[in-house]
Amino acid sequence: MPISPNQGSTGGGTTVTITGTNLGSATAVKFGSKPATITSNTPTSVTVTSPSGSGTAPVTVTTAAGASNPLNFYYIGAPFKASLSAASGPSAGGNTVTISGIGLATASSVAFGGNNATPTVTSDSLLNVTVPAGTSGSVGVSVTTTGGTNNGFSYTYVDVPTIIELAPTSGSTSGGTAVTITGTELATTESVTFDGVTAPFAVVNSTTLSVVTPPGTAGAVDVVVNTTGGSATASGGFTYVASPGI
């Protein structure tokens, strides 16, 4: 006499179907000592809604002829999430985030706000998920398993940045020029490069960066700002000028 599924939430509410023979007159189904609610009944199956419980519960079906042999049903608690490997990412999605915690082995979906993604379960304590596309701003992250759904994390979608202006637009090839970069979506800036060379920077706010140019070669070079949301390029945005020689 099979039972499907054979596991569910400790809070109850799982729809369970028990198949066998001579079940048409079923009067009761118990999970351990707790009765389940019978929702449908045929001679070969009984469908019930599981009661709350914990651990392993023997499931029995009672008919006019007596009680059946027991089948095991395993109660699973709601997952606990310990950490999210990245708290933000591009609005376009597509980046992979790792979630660690407890009770993740039966994870079936991860929701980023109203957008769902199917995770890849590595172990009971680890899963990876490709973030779906979303709208700029913060959303809640929830993991759904056989044991239930757990919330508690926040994830921020970040739009692709833009560069509006550099001031000044030129400086010495020896570097050291203080440059202010203005644009949009700059709060999550991870790096700034001048002709591919990383420059030290500070985030002033979401529209302003303070940067110090690295040494470079005379001529116009590209300036690239990389953020969680993507990258922006000012083509030929800064010109290195060689110092005069006598």
Rank of each mutant, 00 (worst) to 15 (best):
A133I: 13
G176K: 00
T156A: 09
T149C: 12
T180K: 11
T213W: 02
V143W: 06
E190D: 14
V160R: 12
F194K: 01
T177Q: 14
D159S: 07
S170V: 13
T156E: 04
G183V: 00
T145H: 07
T198W: 05
G140A: 14
L186E: 03
T188C: 06
S170N: 15
T188S: 11
V179I: 02
T193C: 07
V143Q: 08
N205L: 13
N205R: 10
S210L: 06
S191T: 09
T173N: 11
S191H: 03
G140P: 05
T208G: 10
T193N: 05
I181R: 01
V211M: 03
T162C: 01
V179C: 02
T135P: 10
T162M: 02
V179K: 04
V143A: 05
A202Y: 11
V139C: 14
I163L: 03
V197D: 10
G183K: 01
E185K: 06
T162N: 01
P168Q: 13
V211G: 02
T169E: 13
V204Y: 07
S172E: 06
T188P: 02
I181D: 05
Y155W: 13
S142Y: 03
V211I: 07
S154R: 15
T145I: 09
V192M: 05
N151E: 15
F201R: 05
T184E: 00
T184G: 00
G196H: 12
I181H: 00
V212Q: 12
T146A: 09
P215H: 07
A202H: 13
N205H: 07
F194N: 00
S138R: 14
G134D: 12
P168E: 13
S210Q: 08
P168N: 11
L186I: 03
T182R: 06
V160N: 13
G137A: 08
S191P: 02
V179N: 02
F201C: 06
G147R: 00
G183H: 01
T145N: 08
S136D: 12
T213C: 09
F194V: 06
G147W: 00
P168S: 12
N150L: 08
T180C: 06
N150Y: 06
V143K: 03
G147L: 01
T207M: 07
T145P: 12
Y157R: 03
N205P: 00
V139F: 14
S170G: 14
E190S: 15
V192N: 07
T146P: 04
T146C: 04
V158P: 01
T193F: 01
V203A: 12
S172F: 07
V192Y: 01
Y155D: 10
A178G: 09
G140W: 13
A202F: 13
D159Q: 03
F201T: 07
G137P: 11
V158M: 08
